[in-house]
Write a protein that binds this DNA or RNA. Structure first.
Lengths: 241, 241
DNA sequence: CGGTGGATTGATACTGATCAAGAGCAGTGG
DNA sequence: CCACTGCTCTTGATCAGTATCAATCCACCG
């Protein structure tokens, strides 16, 4: 159940064969039989920017794998203040096991492809397949690490350091290798969303973008296109290690 | 492996019999055999306030169960800024599975009793006992929920709301039942630690304590002793739901 | 009795929020 | 084809909340 060769295996459901996330995501832990069983209840779908996937405090009856795109997890205060508490990309797992009511909302940030299936189907597999649970555990641990890193950002960094941290996060996500070189990317979030992620206002985010540009840390083309000539310089601007 | 009766069972290791955390913590998933095996490598110890349990970025070779007391998880910036990224109580599990180097430091906040065992012993049990992994997964999910809730506190709340949130957190921990009534407790953290938890300075924390006292939300006796006459009022002061 | 560590309180400074105006750009319809 | 509209982003001026700096208090201890 740990290693297998199924690249040419016709037992793999059609639905799954083209899935780039299959080996990296939690599905990598599933046997052909399990994949087949899961795929019977699976719906592939796309969702566009701004579409709400989960409403905070609503009951959720399905989980999803993110196959492409980006999803933001949000928390809302009664008076409208909002905080983004997580950003997920392919091949992340979306959902909160062992709890029907969601603690946060989920909204599409950059157009996504999702692979959704009912909660109970996955949960019964969870009991039967320890490796699946292991993969889930590892993903949740990763998210916990990220959340705690972000607590440092939110609690102790200046506005400029926060924005640099955000850019650094995206840069590392785009290209996890060679941390030193230059990178270019499209921001998956609007200024307003970045502000909600960093606990700032739109105006402050905008000002810090221009400040970083004037410092030569980044170049900005259009609104979303960012060039980081030297990632080491960017990292220095975060004030963190 | 899901239900068992071992209250009077003499096969339960002596070390574990007196442990109040045994059924609630991850050990609740272990059979007598496993408990025995684990207990052979286990060291019970106490540690006093301010003692460092894990140094950030150091290698860790053991896990612990917290049997009593409180532990704070901290992150440090190169220039000395600090953020507390988690607070753990009995019967929490302390440690980061599947990773030898710690992402954060751990320091005793209120004198603790710990039950420590080598990483590899637990990890081999993890592979063999799915229920153990399940318990761990649930604990990590709980911590992730808490971390995200705290991201909202850090990112979007005012100083007064932050302090009220902290007091609310402690109050709920002391007495998870009847959320409406009054509670009295000793703070497990100093003002400086509370400041590090809330992303504030000592002075601001102190001012907000007096502000909440003047508002009649809390009463303060000595430095650490807090009385909350009405938890609903305190909750209102957090600005959150 | 002086010393030490933690907490409070006050005066002032500064970072980021708020309020306000305008620029850039895409889409729409006359 | 171009004015109009709506949206996002930027920039400027001012305000407010929290940090910083400094003094004092308090409890405890040697």
């Amino acid at each position: 159940m740990t290693e297998r060769e199924d690249v040419h295996n016709s037992d793999v459901p059609v639905l799954c064969r083209s899935c780039e996330a299959r080996h990296k995501g939690i599905c990598g832990a599933l046997s052909e039989d399990e994949l087949l069983q899961l795929s019977k209840h699976t719906v592939k779908r796309t969702a566009a920017r701004k579409q709400e996937l989960i409403h905070e405090e609503d009951e959720v009856h399905s989980y999803s794998n993110i196959m492409a795109g980006a999803v933001k997890l949000t928390k809302l205060m009664p008076d409208g203040r909002q905080q983004i508490v997580g950003l997920q990309f392919a091949p992340d797992f979306l959902g909160r096991p062992f709890q029907s009511e969601s603690n946060f909302g989920a909204e599409v940030a950059a157009d996504v492809k999702l692979c959704s299936f009912p909660k109970d189907v996955l949960e019964s597999m969870l009991g039967a397949n320890p490796e699946l649970e292991n993969r889930l555990l590892r993903q949740v641990l990763k998210e916990l690490d990220e959340a705690r890193q972000w607590m440092l950002v939110l609690g102790r960094m200046t506005a400029k350091e926060k924005v640099a941290s955000f850019l650094s996060l995206i840069a590392n996500h785009i290209d996890p290798e060679h941390e030193g070189d230059s990178v270019t990317f499209e921001l998956p979030l609007s200024r307003a969303e970045i502000a909600d992620y960093l606990g700032l206002t739109i105006e402050t985010v905008s000002r810090q973008f221009t400040a970083l540009r004037k410092d030569g840390v980044i170049e900005i083309e259009g609104n979303r296109h960012i060039v980081v000539p030297d990632r080491e310089t960017l990292k220095d601007a975060t004030g963190s290690t």
